[in-house]
């Protein structure tokens, strides 16, 4: 499979066989072998048992919750990530570099810390929770809390994919739009937005994919009740706790397929958006 194509000069560098061999071996042992165990195990379940497991009402409820809160969180991140990315690239203000650096914090922060931190602030006795409680908004132990946790962990994705796209925008195009009589709002909507839409969708897809698999931060802010606030990852864990390895495998494989399908759709939309943008030019 991995055969060298270009036969380089006699001074070719050494180490091709060694490094590639090690790469493939390590990749196979750590990643490919375990992942194939997942697929084979799911295949070994038999269709009836697989289907029965993944269509059980409790499982379906967990999928609905997981994908619903993930979509909501990715949407929140798309909206605010756009504002943050625009602010960081286009505006000059004191503290800009600090804000820029802080965006990466959710990448570095252990998810358990994110979860426990949100639980502390948004619980009914927390700093912000006691403000929201009289307004009838319960955050912790409800789907809103799950959404909040997923927003936190997905925050860097949209900002980091949008920043280069906004930096690449040519000011001349905006000037041209303005000189042709477009209002600033029209320029934003008709010129700027279409050109950064593909990057925005990439960021959205990355945040969504990350949110669907998230576990550590969610279990701290959710009441983890079956049918209500139980995410798919938690259901996998509780199946394993009951030694139902087959059930856990079926749910995991189904989850992989659904998120894979969603990413395919988003990729297709993204390609459509960038093609339409190019054609418009």
């Amino acid at each position: 499979m991995f055969r060298r194509t270009a036969s380089t000069s006699a001074r070719a560098l050494p180490g091709f066989g060694l490094t590639l061999g090690y790469t493939v071996l390590y990749l196979s042992l750590i990643v490919l072998l375990p992942l194939s165990a997942l697929l084979l195990r799911a295949g070994g379940l038999g269709w009836d048992q697989f289907w029965e497991t993944v269509t059980h009402p409790r499982v379906v409820a967990s999928y609905r919750l997981t994908f619903g809160t993930s979509l909501a969180a990715a949407t929140i991140n798309a909206v605010f990530g756009l504002v943050v990315a625009w602010t960081l690239v286009r505006l000059r203000f004191p503290g800009r570099r600090l804000l820029d650096a802080l965006i990466d914090l959710p990448f570095a922060m252990p998810t358990a810390v994110s979860g426990i931190a949100l639980a502390a602030v948004y619980s009914p006795h927390g700093w912000l929770g006691q403000v929201l409680e009289p307004l009838g908004v319960k955050v912790v132990y409800t789907p809103i809390g799950i959404m909040l946790a997923l927003t936190l962990i997905g925050l860097p994705f949209v900002v980091r994919t949008l920043q280069p796209a906004i930096a690449d925008l040519e000011r001349e195009t905006e000037e041209a739009a303005a000189s042709l009589g477009a209002s600033r709002w029209q320029t934003h909507r008709r010129v700027i937005f279409p050109s950064i839409l593909p990057a925005l969708m990439t960021g959205f897809a990355l945040a969504l994919a990350r949110a669907i698999g998230e576990y550590g931060s969610v279990i701290f802010v959710s009441s983890n009740l079956p049918m209500k606030t139980e995410i798919a990852s938690l259901l996998i864990v509780s199946k394993l706790d009951q030694y139902d390895v087959g059930g856990a495998t079926a749910i995991a494989v189904m989850m992989l397929f659904i998120s894979f399908g969603m990413l395919l759709v988003i990729n297709g939309l993204q390609r459509l958006a960038s093609r339409r943008y190019r054609e418009a030019l």
């Binding site: 790469t23 992942l35 989850m255 992989l256 998120s259």
Partner: peptide, 30 residues
């Protein structure tokens, strides 16, 4: 170096990012 299958290899290296954390644990249990 240039070799065939390079893009596949790069994609496979990124694969663990696409796997949910609990599933990453599950595969070793399996």
């Amino acid at each position: 170096f240039e070799f065939r299958g390079k893009t596949v290899l790069i994609t496979l290296i990124d694969l663990p990012f696409a796997v949910a954390p609990v599933v990453s644990g599950l595969i070793y249990v399996l």
